[in-house]
Each structure stands twice: as structure tokens, then as C-alpha cells.
């Protein structure tokens, strides 16, 4: 880097570190403003200005399909993505997406981080990078242009999904899963190319979904979507132990919990916005919820039986969640 000369002769100041982060999400995304920007500020402050993090959002230097590969190749240092964007790449992480395994964004976020700490198999899945943090979205519900109460109502509906696990669920429910990037949801809903979305209500605000949906079904809790924040491994290894400790302190489980809270908060404001926007919200009563669950339940068994490693991870995850509750 260009500016290390200035600090010569001042041992304590250490080396200046300039980190660049790229991601495919909007710069106004709640995680961007509530987690990443504060993270950059805290890094700068606690390193007395030595560590700077420049965040370049909105796919300006990367894309959802390539952010992970870009960071591994060293095209920039830090990446943030939704694992569901690249099917097949993170099979074991899908454990957190299984139906009913976690109850909320905070629970899922912390649990997934602890799973990483405890599961060598999951560590293996991310062995090419230094994972800074994991978090998950608030639980997925159905946002639609028609009333959805029972699972039968999903039959033949064109529903947007992200990631293979959600695709499996929608297929089980008899819906027609349609893959598309999140920014296209608004347009495609509005123009009837899809009839609904399976997603957490926190996205209502970011994508102005309340303007284009007429109904929301609350309480299904079908899945959560994991996201990951990661750093180039060589870059990580090049950092001093103190700097590594600082970064770890500001990310990891601490960040996971905070990010989970962002989504929890988004969940509430999302439904409030929807109500204000005239969206009819159907709260699923327990007996109806059982009908949904019984259709989705086989997915757990199918998933865990497909690979012994999956079974191990699943059992470990269940135990971690139990400890959390």
C-alpha cells in the first residue's frame, strides 16, 4: 500500500491496512447501514485510523454469482453474499434452512455461527476463506396477490424463491417455483409474472413489497435464509494477531446476533408497513400451521438421510439450538 512510509519510525502505529469490500446488495440495505458501515467505523476507530474498510455496494465490482470466487481470487478482500444465490456451493449450510430448525433470525444467526465453531465439516465448506460472520434472515412467510391460508392454496401459484432448499419446499407445496434476483421481485409481482414470494417480512421495506402484494400469511416460519461475510484467507493470514483479534471481536457471534436483530426488527416494521399499505395479513392458527408442517416435515428426513455428514450436522445444530433456548 502507498502510505506505509509515513509511519516509519513509529513502531506502535503499525502498518496501515486498507480493506476493500464488494457485495451485490444495495448500499441502503439494512445490513449495509446497520451492520457493515458501523463495522467499518469501529475498525477505524479502534485501530486509531490504521484499518480502513471501503465498501463498494450494488454489484459495482462483483455480482451475486461471483462474489465468493472473487474474494478467493483476491479481486478484493471482503465479500458478503446469500448462499442461496449459488446453488450447490454450500450444501451443508442448508441445515439452517430446514423447516422448523430455528425460530428466529437471532437464534438462527447465533446457532449457525456456533455450528461453524463446532463442526469440522462446515469449516471444510468454507476452508478457502476466513468467515467473519454468519447470519440468517427472519423466517420465510408467503407474500402474495391472493389469500393463502392452507397449503392447498399454494397449488399452481408461481412463487419466487432463492436457493435450492426453498425450491424443494415450494415444490412440495405444489407451487411453481420461479428463480429471480431480489430486485426483480417488485416488477414481476406487480406485473403478475409471479403470484407470490416466499420470503421474510423484513424484505417488505427494502423492496417496497407492500405496494405490490395484497396478502401476507404470517406465522408459517418455513425457513430462514443464511448469509455470510468472509475475508480473503491470505489477507487474513497477513494480519497481525492484534488486528485479527480486533476484527474477530467486531465480527463473529457479536455481529451475527446484531444482524439477527436487524432482521427481527425488519420483521416487525415490514408487517406494520404492509398493514398501513392495506395488505391483508392472515395469521396462521396452530391447527392450520400443523397442516403446513406435515407437508414440509419429510424434507428434514430426506435431507439428513442423503449424506451421513448432513445427519451429523443436523444433530449438532439441534443440540446447539436447544442450548440456546
Amino acid at each position: 500500500s502507498s502510505s506505509s512510509n509515513e509511519n516509519e519510525g513509529n513502531e506502535n502505529a503499525g502498518e496501515k491496512i486498507e480493506l476493500v469490500m464488494g457485495h451485490p446488495f444495495s448500499g441502503q440495505h439494512p445490513i449495509s447501514t446497520a451492520i457493515l458501515e458501523p463495522f467499518a467505523e469501529a475498525l477505524k476507530e479502534e485501530s486509531s485510523g490504521r484499518i480502513t474498510l471501503t465498501i463498494i455496494p450494488a454489484a459495482a465490482i462483483t455480482s451475486a454469482a461471483s462474489v465468493y470466487e472473487d474474494v478467493i481470487a483476491g479481486s478484493f478482500d471482503i465479500g458478503w453474499t446469500l448462499q442461496g444465490y449459488t446453488a450447490g456451493r454450500y450444501p451443508l449450510t442448508e441445515v439452517v434452512e430446514l423447516p422448523f430448525i430455528v425460530n428466529s433470525a437471532t437464534e438462527g444467526s447465533v446457532a449457525l455461527w456456533r455450528l461453524l465453531e463446532q463442526s469440522p465439516d462446515l469449516q471444510e465448506e468454507y476452508s478457502e476463506v476466513k468467515v467473519l460472520s454468519f447470519w440468517v434472515t427472519d423466517p420465510g412467510e408467503v407474500m402474495s396477490k391472493k389469500l393463502v391460508q392452507k397449503p392447498e392454496d399454494m397449488s399452481g401459484m408461481r412463487v419466487r424463491f432463492a436457493g435450492p432448499m426453498q425450491e424443494k419446499m415450494l415444490t412440495k407445496l405444489g407451487a411453481v417455483p420461479v428463480g429471480m434476483a431480489a430486485p426483480d421481485m417488485y416488477d414481476n409481482l406487480e406485473r403478475g409474472i409471479i403470484d407470490g414470494i416466499a420470503i421474510g417480512s423484513s424484505t417488505i421495506e427494502s423492496y417496497r413489497l407492500h405496494e405490490v402484494i395484497t396478502h401476507a400469511t404470517e406465522g408459517l416460519h418455513m425457513f430462514v435464509s443464511p448469509q455470510v461475510l468472509f475475508l480473503n484467507k491470505d489477507k487474513w493470514d497477513s494480519l497481525s494477531v492484534e488486528d485479527q483479534d480486533l476484527i474477530s471481536k467486531l465480527s463473529g457471534e457479536y455481529m451475527a446476533e446484531k444482524a439477527g436483530e436487524v432482521y427481527n426488527h425488519g420483521l416487525d416494521t415490514g408487517f406494520e408497513l404492509a398493514l398501513d399499505g392495506g395488505v391483508e395479513i392472515y395469521e396462521v392458527p396452530d391447527d392450520v400451521k400443523t397442516q403446513w408442517d406435515s407437508i414440509l416435515a419429510p424434507i428434514v428426513e430426506e435431507w439428513t438421510s442423503s449424506n451421513p455428514k448432513y445427519k451429523t450436522a443436523y444433530d449438532l445444530m439441534v443440540q446447539i439450538v436447544d442450548d440456546l433456548r
Binding site: 454469482a65 461471483s66 472473487d70 481470487a73 483476491g74 479481486s75
Partner: peptide
């Protein structure tokens, strides 16, 4: 330019990824 600012390896990796991702 990317080689100079970041690294040649980072730049070349982007070429491979961008060629595919932009066609897809």
C-alpha cells in the same frame, strides 16, 4: 489497471468470472 491497484491474479480471475457471468 486492476492489476496495478489490486493484483494481477485478482484481475485475471475477474476476467474468467466476468466472461462467464455476463454471458449467463
Amino acid at each position: 489497471g486492476y492489476s496495478l491497484i489490486v493484483s494481477p491474479e485478482g484481475a485475471l480471475a475477474k476476467l474468467g468470472a466476468d466472461a462467464f457471468v455476463n454471458a449467463k
